[in-house]
Design a protein around this nucleic acid. Sequence first.
DNA 1: ACCTGAACACCGTTCAAGT
DNA 2: ACCTGAACACCGTTCAAGT
Lengths: 236, 236
Amino acid sequence: MKNTRTDQNTIPKSRRERPAKPALTRDGIIDAGLEILRAEGLGKVTMRRIATALDTGAASLYVYIRDTEDLHAQILDALLAPVSRAKPEGDWRQRIKTVLRHYMEVLFAHPALARMAMSTPASGPNYMRLVDNMLGLLLAGGVPDRNAAWGVDLLLLNATANAAEHSTWKESSRAADDFATLEAAVAAADAKEYPHIARLSGELMSGGPDRLEWSLDLLINGVLETPIAFREKEIL
Amino acid sequence: MKNTRTDQNTIPKSRRERPAKPALTRDGIIDAGLEILRAEGLGKVTMRRIATALDTGAASLYVYIRDTEDLHAQILDALLAPVSRAKPEGDWRQRIKTVLRHYMEVLFAHPALARMAMSTPASGPNYMRLVDNMLGLLLAGGVPDRNAAWGVDLLLLNATANAAEHSTWKESSRAADDFATLEAAVAAADAKEYPHIARLSGELMSGGPDRLEWSLDLLINGVLETPIAFREKEIL
DNA sequence: ACCTGAACACCGTTCAAGT
DNA sequence: ACCTGAACACCGTTCAAGT
C-alpha cells in the first residue's frame, strides 16, 4: 500500500490525505461489480450500489456502461474467462462434457446471471472463445459443419437453462419452499386430474446427477447423429 | 352492466353513484394483471400498477398474492389454460410437437414470462395438466416410464429456454440491436482468435424454422432411445 | 470528455390503524 | 378477516452544470 514512486510529491495534498480514489474505468466498474456479486448477490449489483462502492454517483457510470443489462452481461463474461481458457482432458466427448459442466458450475454459483444469460444474446470475448472451443471439439468428433453450428447453440442453451432452473431452487429460501410445495403437489397429485403424474411421481423427482449425465449424452448423441441434409430434401 | 337484482336499493347511495368497485378477489387481480400484460408488457405488471387499476392500494393485494414472483407465476398459469386443454391431432410424435409449439407460442408472445418460468418451479394447475398430457403422449409412443418422466422435463425446459432466448430479440429494440451487433461480430469474427466461428459464421446464423424442428426431433428421439437402465449398471 | 448532484418517475413490502 | 394510507428503503436513468 505504500507509495514508493518518486513523483509522489506531484500529487496534490488533498489526494494524499486518504487512499487515492482510483480513476473510473470500465474494468474498475466490473471489478467492483464482481466483488458485490460475491458478497451480496446480483440483486445488489446495481448502478447506485457500485457507484457508492467507487465513491461516486450512479450517473458517472453511464460513460462506460450502457445500462444495467449491459453491466450484468459484462460481469458474466468476466466470470467466463477461466471456462473459456481451460484445457480439459480425454476424448472429444469427455472434453465437451467437462466444458459444459464447468460452464454450468459458474452459472450455478450465480443463479440470477443464468437467467440473464438466457435473454441477452451473449457476445463477450470469453463467451465467443467458449463457443469456438466447443465448435472445435464437435468438429474433432466428426460432427458435420451444420450440426456443429446448430448443436453448439443447443448444448449451451440447455446448460444455461439447466443452471437457471436448478440454481434458483438452491439459492433463495423462497424457491426452496416452492420446490417442497411442488414435490408435495406431485407426490399427492390427484390421480383423477393427473393420472400420469400420480403414477410416475417417484420417477419425476428421481435422478440426481444421473439425470444431468443422461441429458448430456442424449444431446451430444443427437447433435452427432440427427441428420439435417435429409430433412431439407423432405422440405424441398 | 345493468344491475337487475332486487336488492339494489340496499347498496348505499355512495356506492351507486359511480360504477361499483368490485370486491377484491384473486381472480380479479390476475385478470387485471393479464389486461396490463397485454396492453403494456410484464414490466408494468407491478403490485402498485394493478392496485391502481383496481382502485385500491398495493398493500391490499398481499391478502391474495404472496409477492411479485407469485403474481407473475399465476399469470403465466392462466395463459397456459388453452395449451393444457388442446387436443392435437396425429400420431404421438406429431401431437407432442404440436403441444410444444403451442406452449412456445404463448411464451413467445410474452418474453419476460418465459424468463420467469425458467427460474420459478411451475406448479399451477394448467402447467400440471400440460405435463400430464405430455407424459401420456410419451407413454403412448412406447417411451419407458423413467425416460418419459425425465424427458417431459427436458422437452419443456428446452421449449421454455428457446422462447426465453428468441422472444427477447423480437420484443425489445435494445435486444434487436444486440442481435445485429452479435451477427456482425460473428460475421466479422477474427479468424485468428475464433477460427471455427469465422469459418462457420454462415451456418451459425442459418436455420430459421428448420432449426427448431431439428432440435425437437433430436430431443424426442433422444428421449425415446437413450437408455437409462444401462447407465445405472455402469455406475453400480 | 468526463464527472457530478439533483431530480424524476418509479419499485416491493411492512405495519399500525381502521372496518 | 380484510382493507387502507403512509412510510421505509430502495431502484434506473436523464439532465444541466461543472471541470
